[in-house]
Structures are given as structure tokens and as C-alpha cells.
Design a binder for these strands. Structure first.
Lengths: 205, 205
DNA sequence: GTCTATATTTGGATAGAC
DNA sequence: GTCTATCCAAATATAGAC
């Protein structure tokens, strides 16, 4: 911590701008000059804060995964039933994908391959920590009879279904995130109809 | 058709190589020089066959979507029951994603944004034709009581779940594509357990 | 910590000979 | 239809002044 608060602020703003632009345009189609412009400096100055362009992507992903783990862990702890926990995880992942963490989370899902193998390896432990929470909850659901499929497979199908929502779901539409979460839980566990999400979570059925 | 067969062949080989490299490396990280090398010519010669790099991506996507529509239409026609048709569509989409059309289809799913808006518009009608087949089958399933969710929503969740398989499913593993299709159908319609795919499709239940 | 200036590389694309 | 040669633009990154 040799930096002053003001300098950290600039670095953080770069990470924030990068997340936004990487999501909108893709990592490869976003130039360092654009990142610089977004925070009001020139391109050369960016390299005072980061060693390379890829280091910026790494920073975006790293900070994002940290938040994802935190949020998911909270959600898992907040529910007392197997089914309620599953719903909470789904709601949380959807909120991560569409709330104010959206930019970074989208990048984790869909721009993973823009990261070099070395840096992917760097983040792997964190990704696995996140997935661990999911797999535990799905395994419990399976043990309790609420889930028919293999947890491993169910999670991968769910990852795709949830992640893909960034391409079509819009918060200002008719469908609420909680309704959507309820639909997804219903498919996963095979019985819930839409709109019952709150009920289940509230009463911890 | 002013070209000789041999020349068309060269063009086709470029499209094929492009599909493979775009999938493995991404469109932006693949250079025209690499494409040329893959078919044994120099970079300048590529522009005899295509006006621009993006035209190659467009050609990959266009030929791919044509195949996708063909295959899906066949599948829809081959089944006589609602549930059997749904299973056939799922199996077909998974096969498109993992069979010998894999490269192009992966690109359709995950590199759509590398295409300029103008060219996206060019392909939109074909994409919609493909989705129409899905929505009709899902609507029928809903009318018949086999599906609880809105067809529109179900299809989007399914698109994500199926597409995402390219990141984790491998044909040489323990799980067969038909088993996977069965699991997915089970989730979608809420009751089928794994391994019953063949039975259902065979007996047209 | 930012700027100026620039090194260096790479990429898409073109013109004209063969 | 391919090659040679090259143009031009854009990008990452660096060095040193302020």
C-alpha cells in the first residue's frame, strides 16, 4: 500500500471503464487509447498503473470473481432448505449478471478465452471456489430427491442458461429477475411454475 | 457460376480453415496471413476470393446457418409426437454443436458480435427461420401440457445450455450425446430420467 | 502521475507482374 | 489465381521530460 487513495482511485476507475468497454466491444476490439480516454488520461499513462493491456483484463476478472464468491456464499448461507438455497443461488447469479456487477461478470462468462493460459491458471482456484458452492447445493438437492440430473451436468447446463441471459434479458421488460429465477428452478427441479419464487423462498419450503 | 470447380474448391477450403481457426482462436486473433497459410497460399491471394476478412466470417456463418436450418427442419419432420419432436431437435442441435459442423456452429453461437451490424442484419432472417422451428415445437409442447414455461423463455434458456456445451462436453467421454439430450429434455419437460431418450424417440411416445 | 514523442510490430488491404 | 512488394493504419509499449 504505497499508493495514495487518489491514485488507487484512478486505477479503480480504469478497471471499471475496462469492464464496461470490454463487455460492450470485446477485449480485442478495445484499445488502450480508449481506456485512457474513458478516464481522462493519455494512453502512455495507462502503463503507469498496469504493466500490460492483459493485466487490466486480469484485474477486471480477479476483482469480479472475488465479488462473485462473496455474494454466492452469502446467498448459500441465507437459506435453510435445500430448495430455498438453490433458488437463492439462481437469483444471486442472475443478479450478478444483471445488476451493477454486470460488466465484470459478463466478461468472466464470455471473454475467458481472451485471457492467456498463464493468467487463466492464475484465476482457476477462484473459479473453482465459486463452482464448489454450486455443486454442494446441487448435490444436496440430488440427495434430497429434488434434482434428477447429475449435479456436475446440471451445473454446466445452468451455467450456459444463466450466462446466456445477458444476450436477451433486460431488466426493464415485463419479466422480473425473480420470475425468471423461479422458471429456472422449476426446470431444474421439475415442478415449480412461474411466480412462486417468493413464496418458496419466503416460507423456506 | 463463372468459376471452375477447382477454384470453388479453394474458396471452400478457405471457409473451412476459417471456421476452424475462428473457433479455436477467435475471429480477432486470427490473421488473414494465418488463413492463407492454412490453405497454402499467401495473404494477398486471399483477397482474390473475398473482398475483406469480415466477408470470410460472413461466408462461414451463412453456409453454417443454411446447414443448421436444413438439419433442424429434417429433425422436426422426422418425429410424429410432440415430445419426440422436442427430443429430436435437442439431439440435432447438440449434434450440430459437436459433429462435423462444430466449428461453424460454435461461431454462430459465440462470435456473433464479431460481425458488423450490417452483416448481422444480413443473416437475421435465417436465424429467425431456425428459431421459428424451435418455437413451433415448444409451443406445441406447451399446448400439450409437456412444457410449463413460456416457449420464448424456454428456448432462450435452452440456447444457452446447449451452446455452452462446447466449453465442457467432449464426445470421447463417458456421457453420450443422446444421454445428454435426454437429460436436457427431462429438465425441460420435467420428468424424464437419463437413458430413456432412445426409448421415447423410438416408440414415438 | 501524466505528457510528449516515438519505437516497434502487426494487421488488413492493394497494384501489378506472372 | 497466385505472388511480390508494399502501403497504410492502428495497436501495444517505452523513455524521458515535466
Amino acid at each position: 500500500m504505497t499508493r495514495t487513495p487518489r491514485q488507487d482511485d484512478r486505477r479503480d476507475r480504469l478497471i471499471e471503464a475496462a469492464a464496461r468497454l470490454f463487455r460492450k466491444q470485446g477485449y480485442e476490439r478495445t484499445s488502450v487509447r480508449q481506456l485512457a480516454e474513458a478516464v481522462g488520461i493519455l494512453s502512455g499513462s495507462v502503463f503507469h498503473h498496469f504493466d500490460s493491456k492483459e493485466d487490466i483484463l486480469l484485474a477486471v476478472m480477479s476483482t469480479t470473481i472475488t465479488t462473485m464468491i462473496e455474494r454466492l456464499r452469502e446467498a448459500a448461507g441465507s437459506a435453510s432448505t435445500t430448495r430455498g438455497r438453490l433458488l437463492a443461488l439462481i437469483q444471486t447469479e442472475l443478479d450478478l449478471l444483471h445488476g451493477n456487477t454486470r460488466d465484470g461478470v459478463s466478461i468472466i462468462f464470455f471473454q475467458w478465452n481472451s485471457l492467456s493460459n498463464a493468467n487463466q491458471k492464475e484465476l482457476l482456484a477462484m473459479r473453482e471456489e465459486y463452482e464448489r458452492i454450486w455443486l454442494d447445493a446441487l448435490q444436496a438437492a440430488r440427495d434430497g430427491g429434488a434434482l434428477n440430473a447429475e449435479p456436475f451436468i446440471a451445473r454446466r447446463l445452468l451455467t450456459g442458461a444463466n450466462g446466456w441471459t445477458i444476450y436477451w434479458y433486460h431488466r426493464d421488460g415485463a419479466l422480473s429477475l425473480d420470475e425468471l429465477a423461479g422458471t429456472i428452478l422449476g426446470m431444474l427441479t421439475g415442478s415449480l411454475s412461474r411466480g412462486q419464487a417468493e413464496v418458496i423462498r419466503g416460507s423456506e419450503v
